[in-house]
Design a protein around this nucleic acid. Structure first.
Length: 255
DNA sequence: ATGGTGGCGCGGCCA
């Protein structure tokens, strides 16, 4: 069995104790983190090594930042989308135990009339091309992270209020479907799930208490690997803690 | 209610 998880921690500095607790409880083989918000020299590699995890990271001060924690060595690490000269640290690829892991912090986009939205759509175009290449090279591929896209209306607490807005707009959903068409499977949707399952709840307006959330964090797997997937679930537990991230972990288990 | 909260870092940006 192989457990692979993703969690946008919204500052690894603030959430390190929660991450260590979560690792001890769930003992995943791989945990992909987003929004670490730490420069590389600040990365808590020693604390994670003490917990039994090797790490690869692409850090950035204040914004963005991604990391992969793994029980086995991480090799062939990449930190960028090919051809995209971008100082924002949003991509981290590595091979662990023969499985290619691509950890993503997809741009948020801010609003559909924003320059950041255009950047997001361009970024997703380049991602799709890269995923196609990675699938050629790695039949066992996991693409996971904070996609900042709710793929369908059932992934949205109030689809009418969110219709056409960033995270839910049709161009973003088309980009997500293109990833699936390229050969990836949304492992969450391979299984019966509770209705109104989300992975992110706004800090404002008591979003979590009212379950006003979106499912924007995903674990996608190549078809070969998806056949080995036995479950994919959102773990809401850390979202209930004092001073939580606004995201919950998503955990997939493979044979 | 065109806001609300949280992280970073100390004013304003980003989510």
């Amino acid at each position: 069995m192989l457990t692979i998880a993703t969690w946008n921690v919204n500052s690894l500095r603030v959430r390190l104790a929660q991450v260590l607790d979560w690792l001890a409880t769930h003992q995943p083989d791989v945990l992909a983190l987003q929004e670490t918000k730490l420069s590389d020299p600040e990365f808590p590699g020693e604390a994670l090594a003490m917990a039994g995890y090797q790490t690869a990271f692409a850090g950035q001060k204040t914004y963005n930042g991604v990391a992969i924690l793994a029980r086995e060595p991480l090799v062939d690490v990449v930190t960028d989308l090919p051809g995209l000269d971008d100082s924002q640290r949003r991509v981290l690829g590595a091979t662990v135990a023969g499985i290619r892991i691509l950890n993503l912090y997809v741009p948020n986009g801010q609003s559909v009339d924003s320059d950041k939205y255009r950047y997001k759509l361009d970024w997703l175009d380049r991602l799709c091309a890269f995923v196609g290449e990675e699938l050629q090279r790695h039949p066992a591929l996991v693409v996971l992270g904070d996609f900042n896209i709710a793929p369908q209306d059932r992934d949205v607490h109030d689809p009418v209020a969110w219709a056409g807005k960033v995270l839910c707009s049709e161009p973003e959903r088309v980009a997500f479907r293109r990833l699936l068409d390229a050969g990836l499977v949304d492992t969450f949707r391979q299984f019966e799930q509770p209705e109104h399952t989300f992975s992110w709840w706004d800090y404002r307006a008591a979003g979590f208490r009212r379950n006003y959330g979106l499912r924007i964090d995903h674990v996608l797997a190549s078809r070969q690997l998806a056949e080995r997937c036995r479950s994919c679930q959102v773990d809401r537990t850390p979202r209930k803690l004092e001073r939580p991230s606004d995201h919950a972990p998503v955990v997939a288990v493979f044979d």
